[in-house]
Every structure is written in structure tokens, then in C-alpha cells.
Design a protein around this nucleic acid. Structure first.
Lengths: 217, 217
DNA sequence: GTCTATAGTCGGATAGAC
DNA sequence: GTCTATCCGACTATAGAC
């Protein structure tokens, strides 16, 4: 492994700073300092503050894409098949479970913050994030949900349901302070992770059971 | 109705600016300008930028408290009773439904942004928000969930489950940009609201049904 | 590519007139 | 309580040496 280059360090630090402070709030001086380089190198490598911001968004999209590409691939196959609802349910569980681990893991905290902040008032960076990964995940997941519902559900309903499923996962990243205080936790270790995963899995099964039963009725 | 006083306008504008830009990112000059007053009046009324920030948090907590006090009251009574699980379920539905309307309504967008931002890295303002309202809501809601589970659920499990229920609602505020893009919506009007409420209600029933059935087993 | 120097703008705090 | 004037620090961008 070669040591991280200056522009790679800049991207990592930028995601952290922009995620915490936003585009306007973050300072290129502080970013350059934490990346052990000079402010003017941001101009040189990225053209300026805004260029660095968009590059950070692209970096996040690329990173996430390589992470979930296999899962996405598998989900795509299961949507194409006919009738294998158990496999579709397994794929939903895999995707939601994977996203839960991402939301709980501290390594992805900075990227999550960046993405969440972009939602508040979206810029060009949101477009890149959405078309890069988020949109594909939503499409796949809601297609799987629609398959479990077996045609009794409109596309819009399936997508709204998918949003609520994501919300169950999202809350542990977005409302982290409330979770920690409300649970009396100091950290999210193996025990806490297990409780969360178990709860989400149970909820998911309850919802999918009902969905399937409604189809049979 | 008397016209809003300068410090009242300052609080409203401050919640909006701080919610969008954070404590560091927001500018007292811009806040004062949008509130049709002078920067120095922030110093006079609130002691400075940080004082205004904390006053904004207190204002949010007070506003939310008056909003949900009746619901909280009713929930408290239902927790005290013995055995009336149907009433407990109705109370859960009422609380989640009320929170959904709050999350969807544009009037509360600024307050929601402020609260969500505080979660990213909590300050003293989070303590005030949590002890002011959020903690009470969590306590009530998880007590109701525990009642539906009928003693088969640990307190921690009930609270984690409560978090996921909140997540289903939260996602429509926090990931608003993803929701709008993913659904192809331009606004959240009556039709969209109805779809969301229906989905959340259905999910909630599925989860509570399973919880109750597990108790009976 | 790396680094210094500087221009020009905007930030919060404060003193003091009224 | 309201408003002006000012201080000083931090910011981005840019020109240019090396």
C-alpha cells in the first residue's frame, strides 16, 4: 500500500469537515491543515472549495458503489426471476442488514453526515449521490418489496414502504444522540448491534408477512 | 394579536438559520437582517450568538411541549391502567400519527432541521431539547410498547423497537430530498400524506400484531 | 507541484451616542 | 432599547517565487 496522496487525504478530511459544518461552514484552511497540506493545494487539485465539495460527493458515491455492487447485482437477478418470493425476502433482509451495519459502523459516520446534510438543502452533490448509488438501491429494494406484495401493491406504495424500511435503519445514524441518551448507551458495541439487528429483522418479517398474507387473501 | 416583538422574530429566524447552517455557519448579521433588526440587538437580548442558539433550542422545546402535552398526558394514563392493550395500541397510533403529521408539515421544517443538526454533534442545546420533550416522548412511547408486549420484552428491547418506529416517521423529514426524488413527487400534498400515513399505520399494526401474538404464545 | 504573501470580504464582539 | 462605528480575526481566492 502506498501512503495516501495529498489529494486523497484532502478528500477524506473534506468529507468529515463538510459533513459536520456544511459547504459554507467548513474552512478550506482547516481542511488543508488537518490533511497536512496547504490551502492552495485545494485550488491546485480541485479548483477551489466548491470543486472539493463535489469531488467529496463523487468520492462517497464511488466508495458506496463498490461496497454494495455485489448485493445490488444479486437483487437484480432476484427481481428478474418469477415467483421465488422467499429469495426476494432473503435479498431484502440482506440489503437492510447490510445497510444497518453501515449505519452503525463508525467508519462511515463521516459519509453519512455528508449525505444527511445534503438532504437539508440539496445541491448538485445530491444529484451525483442519488444517481450514483442511492437511486439504484431504492429501485432494487422497492422492486423486491413489490415482488413480495405480488402485484397487489402500486409502485408508489411499494416505494413508500421501502422508505419506511430505510427509516428504521436510518434512525440509528441520524438520531444517534437521541438513541445513545434514550438507551443509556455509551457506545454501540456487539451487544447493542445485536439488539438493533434483531429488532429490525423482527419488524421486517412482521411487515413482509403481512404483505404476503394480504396478497394471498 | 400584537405584532411579533423583535426578540420573537429573532428566535424564529435564528431557528431557521441555525438549522440550515449550524451554530458556526450561521451569521448573526444575516439573522438580524432577516429579522428586521440590528446585530447588536442579539447581544442585547441574548448576550451573543451562543445565547441566541440556546434560546432557540429552548424555544423549540417549549413549542413542542405545548403541542404534545395532551397526547403525552393521555399516554401516561394508559400506561398506568392494567390490561387495556387495545387502548395502549390506540395511544401508540395517536402518537406516531401525530409525529408523522409534524414531520410532513412544512411549518415545523425549521425546528426539525435544528434538532437533526444537534444530533450530529450534540451541544448543551441537545440536553435541553432531550430533557424538555424528546425524552418524555420516548419514555411514554416505549412504556406503551412494553405494555403491548405484555412483559415478554425487556425494557431495552422495547426502547430499541420504539426507535425503529420513530425512524419510519423520521425518514420523511430527514431524507426528504431522497423521498421526493425517489417518489417523483413535487410536494407532499394530501394524496402523498395519505399514502405515507397509510403505509406507516399498516407497518405499525403488523409490528404490534406480532408483538401481541408473541406474548400470547 | 509546493509554498508564501497578500488582497478583499465577512465574521462576532464591543463601546458609546441617543 | 435602538443604532452607529470600529476593532480584530478568519475566510477564499489569487498571483507569483521556487
Amino acid at each position: 500500500m502506498s501512503p495516501p496522496s495529498a489529494d486523497s487525504r484532502l478528500l477524506d478530511v473534506a468529507i468529515d469537515h463538510f459533513g459536520r459544518l456544511g459547504l459554507e461552514g467548513a474552512s478550506t484552511r482547516a481542511i488543508a491543515r488537518d490533511a497536512d497540506t496547504l490551502m492552495s493545494s485545494i485550488t491546485y487539485h480541485f479548483g477551489g472549495k466548491e470543486g472539493l465539495y463535489l469531488a467529496a460527493a463523487d468520492h462517497i458515491a464511488a466508495h458506496m458503489h463498490t461496497q454494495i455492487a455485489p448485493t445490488l447485482e444479486r437483487a437484480a437477478q432476484l427481481c428478474g426471476d418469477d415467483g421465488d418470493i422467499a429469495a426476494a425476502r432473503a435479498a431484502i433482509h440482506a440489503m437492510i442488514g447490510g445497510m444497518t451495519m453501515v449505519m452503525l459502523h463508525d467508519d462511515t459516520a463521516a459519509m453519512s453526515r455528508f449525505i444527511v446534510r445534503e438532504q437539508a438543502d440539496p445541491t448538485e452533490a445530491f444529484t451525483r449521490l442519488y444517481s450514483g448509488v442511492m437511486g439504484q438501491m431504492l429501485d432494487r429494494l422497492s422492486a423486491l418489496v413489490a415482488r413480495v406484495a405480488g402485484g397487489r401493491m402500486s409502485d408508489a406504495d411499494a416505494r413508500v414502504l421501502t422508505m419506511t424500511l430505510l427509516g428504521q435503519v436510518l434512525v440509528f445514524r441520524v438520531a444517534r444522540a437521541t438513541v445513545m441518551t434514550g438507551m443509556g448507551w455509551n457506545a454501540i458495541g456487539p451487544a447493542e448491534t445485536a439488539t438493533i439487528i434483531r429488532t429490525i429483522t423482527t419488524n421486517l418479517d412482521a411487515i413482509l408477512d403481512q404483505l404476503q398474507a394480504g396478497d394471498a387473501a
